[in-house]
């Protein structure tokens, strides 16, 4: 298919566009940032003005005092994750970004559920807690507070089961994550 005179052959037809790809799945993106005033605002501000919707966001310290980790989850059906990470990279205070591979990643969130549970319901709630390895951390006359850790999906499942009993309130941290194996995330 090469034209006369060109030594190497390449058909334009064969070229495929690279970017703008929508994966269609959930992504966990781990962002290491300099621990300086205003850095979180820069990151969240960027999400807001570029119209990137984040599902959860968790921030905390790392083993290094000068570095914080921001873990976000977002929907790869809505956004090109590539564009999200490239825009983030432009922030000078952002040191490293990893779009974590699901199979290679340990993700956990912590959630507290205040569930209305009196009489017979209480036993059933306790049973569900048991199955999910949730801990009852507070008991009062008409309610219990359960603490659950696990993946976002596990916590979602717990929430679905517990809701019918009367979910008074709920607090979730959003996932944090770390890669499996010896390598740094």
């Amino acid at each position: 298919m090469g034209e006369p005179g060109t030594k190497e052959i390449l058909s334009l037809e064969e070229l495929e566009a690279a970017g703008n790809f929508r994966s269609g799945r959930k992504h966990i993106v781990s962002i290491l940032v300099e621990n300086k005033p205003g850095v979180l605002t820069r990151v969240t501000g960027l999400f807001a003005r570029r119209g990137f919707n984040i599902n959860t966001l968790a921030v905390g310290p790392t083993d290094d005092d000068s570095v914080s980790r921001i873990t976000i989850t977002l929907d790869g059906a809505v956004h090109s994750i590539d564009q999200v990470t490239k825009q983030l990279h432009k922030l000078i205070n952002v040191l490293k970004i990893r779009d974590l591979e699901p199979e290679e990643t340990l993700a956990r969130e912590l959630a507290l559920f205040k569930i209305s549970a009196d009489g017979v319901a209480r036993a059933e709630v306790m049973q569900i807690c048991d199955i999910f390895r949730a801990h009852i951390v507070d008991v009062s006359k008409r309610a219990v507070v359960a603490e659950v850790t696990g993946t976002q999906e596990k916590v979602d499942a717990f929430e679905r089961l517990i809701r019918p009993f009367g979910l008074i309130e709920m607090a979730r941290t959003g996932e944090i994550a770390i890669g499996r194996g010896r390598n740094e995330t």
């Binding site: 070229l15 495929e16 566009a17 690279a18 970017g19 703008n20 090109s80 590539d82 564009q83 490239k86 825009q87 990279h89 432009k90």
Partner: peptide
């Protein structure tokens, strides 16, 4: 020079 420009509006075949 800005990787974020590539495929932002029009997908590139050779970035």
């Amino acid at each position: 020079i800005d990787p974020a420009e590539i495929s932002k509006n029009v997908p590139a075949h050779i970035p």
